[in-house]
Simulated assay, not measured.
Amino acid sequence: MSLDRPVAPNPYDLLPRVPSFSVTSTDVTDGAPLDDDQVAATGNTSPQLSWSGAPEGTQSYVVTCFDPDAPTPSGFWHWVLVDLPADVTSLDTGAASATLPGKAFHVRNDGGEKGFMGAAPPEGDMSHRYFFVVHAVSEPSLGVDDSASPAVVSFNLAFKTLARAIIHGTYQH
Rank of each mutant, 00 (worst) to 15 (best):
M1A: 13
S2L: 12
V7D: 13
P9M: 13
P11K: 10
P11L: 13
Y12R: 12
Y12W: 15
D13H: 12
L14Y: 01
P16T: 12
P16G: 13
R17F: 01
V18M: 09
F21Q: 03
V23Y: 05
T24Q: 09
T24G: 10
D27N: 15
D27E: 15
V28M: 02
V28K: 01
T29P: 00
T29N: 01
T29D: 04
G31R: 01
G31Q: 01
A32M: 14
D35A: 14
D37H: 11
D37A: 15
D37S: 15
Q38R: 11
V39A: 02
A41S: 14
N44W: 10
N44H: 11
T45N: 01
S46G: 07
Q48D: 15
Q48C: 07
G53V: 04
A54V: 00
E56P: 02
E56V: 07
E56K: 09
T58V: 06
V62Q: 02
V63T: 02
T64Y: 01
D67P: 08
P71Q: 08
T72P: 04
P73W: 11
P73K: 08
P73M: 12
W79M: 13
V80P: 02
L81W: 13
P85K: 12
V88R: 11
V88E: 06
T89N: 15
T89H: 15
D92Q: 15
D92F: 06
G94W: 06
A98Y: 07
T99C: 00
T99R: 12
T99L: 11
T99F: 00
L100N: 02
P101H: 09
F105L: 04
H106Y: 02
V107H: 10
D110M: 09
G112L: 09
K114I: 08
G115E: 09
G115V: 10
F116A: 08
M117I: 05
M117G: 13
G118Y: 09
A119I: 04
A120G: 01
P121D: 04
E123Y: 06
M126N: 03
H128P: 05
R129K: 11
V133W: 00
V133C: 02
A136P: 05
V137Y: 07
V137A: 06
E139T: 10
P140W: 09
P140A: 10
P140L: 12
S141N: 04
D145K: 03
S147G: 07
S147E: 12
A148K: 04
A148F: 12
P150E: 08
P150A: 12
V152Q: 11
V153T: 02
V153K: 02
S154Y: 05
N156Q: 11
L157S: 04
A158E: 15
K160C: 09
L162P: 06
L162S: 08
A165M: 08
I166E: 05
H168Q: 14
H168A: 10
H168S: 14
H168N: 14
G169E: 05
T170V: 04
Q172E: 10
